[in-house]
Design a protein around this nucleic acid. Structure first.
Lengths: 235, 235
DNA sequence: CGTGGGTTTGAGTGGGCTCAAGCCCGGTGG
DNA sequence: CCACCGGGCTTGAGCCCACTCAAACCCACG
């Protein structure tokens, strides 16, 4: 736990040019910094559990968070990932409901906990901030609607190609074209909404076709246009 | 068009106890009534089109609106229905995006058009109203996440049972247990995310099992618990 | 060197899709 | 009044995608 010795700070997170908090007044910003608790979270830690009361939201300074629902038979359905700059858990806090998802760290990093009442206070007294959060929710809702349509109408093959492109969009590639997020085959299956074996077969199929390359969990994106073509998305 | 002679009014819609507009100031309410244009919309009319600019939102005083996306091969995916008291189109207006869905009247009724800039003005200057809309978006987002999980993990049979229960929740039954919304088999399929023939086969299967009764488009819900059991939802 | 989690591959099966044909029923025009 | 549509509904046959089950492999780790 030596890492805790470096004093963590959320400054980049709060002050970034695209930060959701850019509309806060100086006083509110002070209050935010004073009331929020940053710390390093390790791989496997759970931020909140589906069905439980949620006491605040988390702002991600670094690391990756997996947000998922647990289906009837215990199978995970990954709804989204959170990364640098994302704020998670706000949905349940603002709707004043129990958490409808579970959030778990898959890449360790620095997160800032912000108490629920503080967030609600900001929303109620700062229209600019409120509008910002609302835009976020509306954007997520648009994405969700799109994914509903995909799940209902596309084949597993199409969806897997699309997910690879989405992950590329969100997490980027390194100089060797390697996707900058590491997922198990099972996790990939739990995004796409299919069985682990199907993901494995399709991935090696994509590899045969020269669309991607595989080395363990590293996925190299070789032919983006080929994937776009298969996915029937990204017009 | 004789119906237009009766002067339509949105009063019930704006002043209802659960109205989203309950937090508006008297001046804002006046402005709303002055600036909004109520009229009767007939079956088949389209309020807005997916991919086009959207000039305002609609508040439903009566009637039913179908909100859907059009998939790659032209197939509709119904995202939700709007009824009395619902406000639709706000997502795209607030996110300042092109419409991500199409909205079409399936049961004629009175709707009130509210210009986009007026809605945005209210959101920006009235935190209570803003909070109310935000809660709405968050709630819809929760529903969407649930449906993503269902689509990814449940069988068509389970989903159809679940949809019948959701429709019962939203539109209610008459004294003969008949569902108070009339849909074609194809529309049902486009909610569930399956082929028309599958819906037909499963409905008659449910009828055989004594769960429902069918008379054309009228669906009688006979055994709610049976449907719950099949749907693996509603714990 | 065993243990266990993740990955891979194969075989078999079945849910649900597609295609095709026929039916029902309300509307329309001769 | 009847013939004839046409849209929606129903039923059947056949097939294939993708799931399940089972077995083996790989590799990091204690």
């Amino acid at each position: 736990m030596k890492k805790q010795d470096e004093i963590p700070t959320c400054n980049t997170c709060f002050n970034g040019i695209n930060s959701i908090f850019k509309h806060l007044s100086p006083e509110q910003m002070d209050l935010l910094i004073y009331s929020s608790t940053p710390r390093i979270y390790e791989k496997g830690e759970t931020l909140y559990h589906e069905g439980r009361r949620i006491s605040g939201v988390y702002c991600i300074e670094s690391g990756i968070v997996k947000i998922y629902k647990t289906g009837f038979d215990g199978k995970e359905q990954i709804i989204m990932f959170g990364k640098q700059g994302d704020i998670i858990g706000y949905r349940s806090v603002l709707a004043n409901e129990l958490a409808c998802t579970t959030a778990k760290i898959i890449d360790e990093g620095l997160l800032c906990f912000i108490p629920a009442n503080l967030l609600i206070q900001f929303v109620k007294e700062n229209p600019g901030f409120s509008y910002e959060i609302m835009k976020l929710a509306c954007k997520e809702l648009g994405d969700a609607n799109q994914y509903i349509t995909d799940l209902a109408q596309k084949s597993v093959r199409e969806r897997l190609a699309e997910i690879l492109l989405h992950l590329t969009d969100k997490f980027g590639l390194d100089t060797y074209q390697t996707l900058q997020i590491s997922l198990t085959r099972e996790e990939l299956a739990n995004i796409v909404g299919t069985a682990t074996e199907s993901v494995i077969r399709l991935l090696s199929d994509f590899k045969q076709s020269g669309l991607i390359d595989l080395q363990g969990r590293k996925i190299k994106i070789l032919d983006m246009n080929g994937l776009k073509h298969i996915s029937n998305a990204f017009p």
